[in-house]
Write a protein that binds this DNA or RNA. Sequence first.
DNA 1: CAGCCGTCTTGACGGTTGTCCAAATTATTG
DNA 2: CAATAATTTGGACAACCGTCAAGACGGCTG
Lengths: 212, 212
Amino acid sequence: MARQATGAAQRVAVAAETLRDEKFNARRIELAEAALETLGELGFARTSLREIAQNSAFTHGVFHYYFSDKLDLICCCVRHYKAKCVTRYDEVVTTARSRDELTEGFLAKLAATLETEARMHRLWYDLRSQAMFEPAFRKDVLEIDKSLEAMIWRIATRYAELGNKRPASSPAALYALFDGLFQSALLRYLADDKKAVPDLLDEVRRLLPTIC
Amino acid sequence: MARQATGAAQRVAVAAETLRDEKFNARRIELAEAALETLGELGFARTSLREIAQNSAFTHGVFHYYFSDKLDLICCCVRHYKAKCVTRYDEVVTTARSRDELTEGFLAKLAATLETEARMHRLWYDLRSQAMFEPAFRKDVLEIDKSLEAMIWRIATRYAELGNKRPASSPAALYALFDGLFQSALLRYLADDKKAVPDLLDEVRRLLPTIC
DNA sequence: CAGCCGTCTTGACGGTTGTCCAAATTATTG
DNA sequence: CAATAATTTGGACAACCGTCAAGACGGCTG
């Protein structure tokens, strides 16, 4: 039926629909970004839709208009978070011309991330733990984990390349190592342990040459 | 005043009080153990005191009698969990007479743990993430993390010793590595990934000789 | 301008939460 | 055995939760 409409009218209709969809999606992301603020502050367990709305410029009804569900909102938040997170070290990787340059660039970004985005990262660890209980989260979380693993792998292979070597361990092991170190440092940092950041940097600095 | 009571009477009073305290504490642990059942099933975010009580032989009032708070209960649960968890590999470490024997013993326990106590472990990861938001959890969680790091370190040093070597990395890095691998494997296992356990075992088997 | 549609606000709903308490029950003491 | 203390019960409470729906708003189209 619709398929038999004149080509022009059909194209107009389709264009209008995709425009609406884009606007709708842009609004979703806007709301997700506002929600991330509160989620990063309180964590998944203590965050309610009303709390999210109150800490933002929106009313709680809007969230229900754009998201079918609380889980739907959180999933959108996670997915949006992913996009920003995964490219963090890419510039360093592509511009570094020596091992030292890469090391220092990586360490600087690492420290800056830990100190300025601690709230977003604790939320990530929170949601990854929630995925162990809530099946609805698992797909997105596993996907993000894969992207982060690839991100670490890009750093490692570039580092190895600059020394004419090859990484000595698997992507999975490498990611597990860095993720574990970061997670531990984050907890210590949040607990006001002043040595959390320098200890992490020392550890990574010592580790990099041994794994590649 | 009480210090000047006759020695005998004082000793009796003190004995009575410690007896009461012990009984009180035993009851707390009994309740904590019941609570762990539900917490492991639902996770921190979705577990209420009433839910805990309903899934146990106790009424919800008792929990408030023995614990000042919900956080108090959870803290007690975590501490109790710790004691059981930290000694898991000790027998393997002390009885193994060769590297292979230690490796196989460790891997077997690792797989068994992942498969039979997945619920308790996801709760641990949940609570460790909560500690990033809730200061009241931090002290206990950091302490447990330290014990787990020591546990891994005992395995590594024994493994190195059996090969007349010394571990090639720090306790912190080693723990980060194994914890990261286990966490990832646990999530995949809970997501019904049949390769989660064998992949973990392969990875660890390959890793052990390279780090010691 | 009238009418429609997408967007948003507001208040209400049933259910659940942590907490508290008065009364009932059980154990312990004199 | 009586009485005092410790323990347990189950209901009441206010606050909060996610969800929903009726209607208001504003721009666009016919």
